[in-house]
Amino acid sequence: MGLLNVVVGSEDPGKAWDAFVAAASTGAALLLRRRLPGTSIGLLYMPRGPVLDWSQAEQVEQFAEALRQVACEQGVFLVQADPAVPEERVDVHDALTRMGFQRVEKQGLFRILQPVHVMRIPVDRYGGPEGLLAALPHKSRYNIGLAKRKGVVIVPRTDHNALRVFHQLLLQGGRRKGFPVRGLRFHEAIWRHCVQTGLGEYLFAEHGGRVVAVIQVLRFGPTAWYMYGASTGEDQNLMASYLLQWTGISRSWAAGCRWYDMRGVVSAKPSPEDPEYGVYEFKRRFNAELVSFLGEYDLAISPRVYAGWRWLEQAVQRPAAWSYRLYQKLGRLT
């Protein structure tokens, strides 16, 4: 059994990443290939993959063999994966190990950057949004109602100008709080392939005719994802963020989604002393539950090149971390 290797193109005009779809009768994976600058080699990344029936050992082995064949054909030294599989699935970890993958802990620039710990709301467990609303903490219900009483209005949009306003708010928030924001080209690709195809939307919170906050929600199958959010900083007393999330949950349910994924938190055991604890606390106020995935895995196709790559990872972490802290400080000053 072999993989069906279909080139579907690159969204990056600079060809930083090339995208493939690898599929077989028993599983599938999206493969992103990146060439290392100035070399003929590169790496493959399987975002949230592969998707397999992990109980079928023979099929998993066949997929692994075909994956190595594709990797060799593409001239890569490494295949990275971060399957969306809960960490308690030891059987999947064992299967990945038999495929030749090894679990790795990475930091900074060399992390895949998909969240390992996410917060998910099982909306169907409550019978729908109304059942969920009744089960929310009193303060959450109060804040949702308060936003309505203060005149906050939620406006769904999918037009291109909505994308631009959304991205501008992201940039303003990034400068104010000192975190990096992906460029317009990245968000334009999401708009074109997801929002414009009916798989997502922007929800704007408006007050007195002014936009005070916005979130982006994407939907696929039974799951909706709160991807990004931003505000002007003027919405705190209006509780607009509560009404935005509640609207996102309700509209996702109406579109057929049964899970609402509020995406990542930094730790499996958040502590009030953590700088990002407020993010976890806000999501928990919507009865979101913490789910931890298995983590990141590397399959070394060329052990010698991979060893050099791992050495480089360790060598650049300290200067990279220093540069990021400097970026944060400068961002807060502007």
Rank of each mutant, 00 (worst) to 15 (best):
V165G: 05
L184Y: 09
G183S: 07
L199K: 15
P156I: 12
A205N: 00
K148E: 13
G183T: 05
D159G: 08
L171Y: 08
G183Q: 02
V118H: 12
Q107I: 14
E201T: 15
Q172C: 05
G198W: 12
L163D: 13
K150W: 00
V155S: 02
V212E: 13
V152T: 02
V195T: 11
C194P: 04
E188G: 13
L136W: 01
R120T: 11
D91E: 15
E105P: 03
F204C: 03
L171W: 11
P156Y: 12
H117P: 01
L136I: 03
L184Q: 10
V116E: 11
G208C: 10
P129R: 01
R125M: 08
L132R: 01
R98I: 02
L171N: 12
G183W: 03
G178C: 12
M99E: 11
R210E: 11
H207P: 01
D124P: 02
R185W: 06
L133V: 01
L199G: 15
H160I: 09
G209E: 10
M119G: 08
L203C: 04
H187E: 14
G208Q: 11
Q196T: 11
M99Y: 10
I190W: 07
L113E: 13
Y142V: 00
V155G: 01
A134V: 00
G174L: 11
V165E: 14
R175D: 15
A147H: 02
E130R: 07
R182D: 03
G178D: 14
R182Q: 09
P115D: 09
S140Q: 08
T158Y: 02
Y126M: 02
M99T: 13
R98D: 09
R176V: 09
F204E: 02
I154H: 09
A162C: 05
I154L: 10
R182A: 09
E130L: 03
H138R: 10
P86V: 10
H93F: 15
R111H: 04
R111K: 10
S140A: 14
A205M: 04
G208I: 04
A189E: 13
E201N: 11
V85Q: 05
Y126R: 06
L184R: 05
R210W: 00
G173M: 09
I121L: 13
H207Q: 07
F101I: 07
R182C: 03
